[in-house]
Amino acid sequence: MSLLKSEWRKLIYVRAHWGLLIAAVLLSALGTGVTPLILENSRETFGFGLDQQQAVDSVYANAISGYIFAIIIGIMLMAGEFRHGTAVATFLTAPKRGTVLANKLGMAAIAGILVMVISTGAGIIAGLVGMSFYPDAAEPSSEIFLNTMVAAVVSGAVLGIIGVALGTLIRNQMLAIVGALIYLFVIDPILLLLWPDAGKFLPSGLITGMMALDINSPELGFDTSNYLPALSATLVLLGYGVVFAATAIATSLRRDVE
């Protein structure tokens, strides 16, 4: 418990972590707040409008878009130790590295969940406000809010863990963050678009699958029926977490601390 308490203090004492939480809230709120306007004014582009349930569901699904910040916090919790030189104090206080990493992974999962629950909650509220300007819009599906929150919790935990693993492997904080951003914003969407059969097993595809959306937009080449069912997507994403956690622990045990 003492190591977890120490990791909690690292999390809440560093202002940059609060900045990331605020950024996640703003991104999610902005995403859901303005999506109704975009959808209603670009009906031909998307192939559907707010009079259809799939459009309204996609508005609320946008609430999960802050997940990038969960991975960044995970990276900062680990790579930040090497950037600021605090890894020395950390591993002198608790020289059993596997134990330190296990606690850090646990705290990154908690941090990721907190970021995702708060930002997704804010996004859903902003979506409700945005949708209130369209009284004739369709009703959202009954399970969209629950599915989105479950996806937020699982993706927050797993991405936090992946972040710590990346920070352990790469150690250079800026390089790890830029790499994660390029992967999640460029490589992952391209793979998802070009090879949906393989892309559905990648993080973005799995998170989308977890929300069990029913959206088909031939205009955008987007059909959620190609994605894994919610439970399968959840299990595969958790599998990513296990693999990355094991990699982080194995790596930390072997390398010298500078």
Partner: peptide, 17 residues
């Protein structure tokens, strides 16, 4: 020690661990 934290906060992190 973390430059953005106070001396006391840095030591409290170590003390907790």
């Amino acid at each position: 020690f973390h430059g953005a934290l106070s001396g006391k906060a840095n030591l409290k992190v170590v003390a907790a661990a």
